[in-house]
């Protein structure tokens, strides 16, 4: 497991982030400590922030997009997340890892957005899942992978927080300790939540096939 809460790379499970790998490789080689140190200096503040955005943008995009589905909403939330990171980074004390701290901001943005959307539409949880599934069909009308598509639709039926836990564990391969830091929930509760989520998804997939 690396210091950012990821398990050692497993070729079969490694998510394929579609991006410019050479640039990303260069940015990923910059440590969080270096970014934070450079951010504290006025002359390298903008450079450091630019590196931070480049380092986390793809992962955060995927994290947010899985929660809100639409690209436009994801784009707004991702930008808002980085604006908040900029505003608060000076006060970042390093009590948590930079990675989990940034993820927490993005997660809170997502939850707030979904809550707002729900109260604006005046619909219960199940209805918003339906809406997200419809959004998913619009986003990817010709999905090549039927299993992955059905799985994603089953995930959308989960309650927000359970969905977050599932996404972070299954898709983003974060360990429970990192998820616990991001969500502020105990590891035991997260394990139970993930177990329930997997059970619900398997039941749903059983019905589909």
């Amino acid at each position: 497991m690396n210091p950012q809460g990821y398990h050692a790379p497993q070729p079969s499970k490694e998510p394929s982030y579609p991006t410019n790998t050479s640039k990303l490789g260069m940015v990923m080689s910059i440590s969080d400590e270096e970014i934070l140190a450079k951010f504290k200096q006025n002359e390298s503040k903008n450079w450091a922030f630019d590196m931070l955005v480049r380092k986390y943008q793809v992962r955060l995009y995927q994290h947010i997009r899985k929660m809100v589905v639409s690209h436009e909403d994801t784009d707004d939330l991702l930008q808002d997340t980085f604006v908040k990171v900029w505003q608060s980074l000076e006060n970042f004390r390093g009590e948590a890892q930079l990675f989990t701290w940034v993820y927490r901001i993005a997660t809170n943005e997502c939850l707030r957005f979904l809550q707002k959307k729900r109260s604006f539409l005046g619909v219960p949880i199940l209805d918003i899942s339906e809406r997200l599934a419809t959004e998913l069909d619009k986003s990817m009308p010709f999905s090549a992978d039927e299993v992955a598509d059905k799985l994603q639709k089953a995930v959308l039926k989960l309650p927000d927080k359970q969905r977050l836990v599932f996404n972070m564990k299954y898709y983003e391969d974060l360990n429970y300790e990192a998820i616990s830091e991001i969500l502020g929930t105990s590891v035991g509760a997260l394990k139970a939540s993930y177990h329930h989520a997997v059970k619900k998804i398997e039941d749903q997939l059983q019905k589909e096939f």
Binding site: P15, Y17, Y61, R65, D75, S143, Y171, I201
Partner: peptide, 17 residues
Amino acid sequence: MKKLPQIPPKHLFEAPN
């Protein structure tokens, strides 16, 4: 039907361009 651990995680979402 496969069990979940047998399905490799795949990111379906891509940003346009």
